[in-house]
């Protein structure tokens, strides 16, 4: 089992963005998905940095794919998506729209925002050229195991959401803009102020979600510390770590150590929580009653 770094979900200034991928080149991850997932309005601010980052990651021995947008609606977004299919780099589809542009049989990866819930969909995607699929985060462990078995026969590698705020929803409406009394077209890039999303609390102060422009994330950071052995024996090919602004390359190293048995179950979560006090972790989608649950609070 190895590590894939998912596309950055947030809006970072171009210099911060470049610095993140410079650092990532040295991290113990095997592949990186790069590009804009959430909002096409952000792309012009760092688009010209992408080719250099891709080269640097390739030179460092990583496999690299370019992500599509999660929701393609506007003419401009359709054009961007067409161009993505012509870049000569593997594409990770996070909206099925990309399949309308990819030549049939062209190899691609499938991201967690495409609804791969069953063998039929997996088989259909594999027949069209899917080589690697990161499953939707809400899938329970039993479904993951069933899909891994089906994927083996199809020559498809299966990834599971390993770490990071969970992508729970995508919308036509920008909640960051709404919060500032603006519309999406006049958002003035309010989402740039929140490097890891803006916390959303219930009225009695319980952390619940995080807004990130048109995207809604979980408040908690998904963490697979307690499932790594099970996922490995189920045949999961990679854990997907989702970029966050603070200490991310160290996080990659911790996960690598945990996979290599250099950290025991619970130690990884302990390390994360001791350097980021106040962070809430969850693994309920995989093994709990509901997504926000966390094994770390139960007796092990």
């Amino acid at each position: 089992m190895d590590l894939t770094i998912g596309p950055n979900q947030f809006f970072w200034a171009a210099d911060r963005w470049s610095e993140f991928y410079d650092d990532l080149a040295q991290a113990p991850a095997n592949r990186v998905v790069i590009g804009e997932l959430v909002c096409s309005k952000r792309l012009p601010f760092y688009q010209d940095r992408i080719p250099e980052a891709v080269s640097r990651l390739l030179e460092a021995g990583k496999e690299v794919a370019l992500t599509s947008l999660a929701l393609v609606t506007l003419k401009r977004e359709r054009k961007l998506t067409t161009e993505l299919a012509e870049m000569g780099v593997t594409v990770e589809i996070n909206d099925l729209t990309v399949l309308a542009y990819l030549p049939e049989g062209c190899a691609f990866w499938v991201g967690p925002l495409v609804n791969v819930y069953n063998e039929g969909t997996l088989r259909w995607l594999a027949a069209r050229g899917a080589k690697r699929v990161c499953l939707p985060p809400e899938l329970p462990l039993e479904s993951v195991a069933t899909l891994v078995r089906a994927a083996e026969d199809l020559g498809v590698a299966i990834e599971v959401w390993g770490h990071g705020r969970l992508p729970l929803a995508i919308s036509g409406r920008c909640y960051h803009a709404r919060l500032h009394g603006r519309t999406k077209d006049n958002c003035q890039f309010a989402c740039e102020e929140d490097a890891d999303g803006l916390d959303v609390l219930t009225r009695d102060g319980k952390p619940f979600m995080a807004t990130n422009g048109v995207q809604t994330l979980s408040d908690s950071y998904a963490c697979t510390d307690y499932q790594i052995e099970t996922l490995r024996s189920a045949g999961v090919s990679a854990l997907r770590l989702s970029p966050h602004s603070n200490g991310f390359t160290r996080l990659c190293t911790l996960y690598r150590q945990r996979i290599d048995h250099n950290l025991a179950p619970g130690d990884l979560a302990h390390e994360i929580l001791s350097t980021n006090p106040g962070t809430r972790l969850s693994d309920g989608f995989l093994t709990g009653e509901f997504g926000a649950e966390w094994s770390g609070t139960k007796p092990q």
């Binding site: 999660a70 929701l71 925002l113 609804n115 939707p136 985060p137 809400e138 969970l166 729970l168 929803a169 995508i170 619940f208 979600m209 809604t216 979980s218 309920g284 989608f285 709990g288 009653e289 509901f290 997504g291 926000a292």
Partner: peptide, 10 residues
């Protein structure tokens, strides 16, 4: 494309 409900309730 929404799993808010399963996040809170399963």
């Amino acid at each position: 494309r929404c799993s808010l409900s399963s996040y809170a309730t399963g």
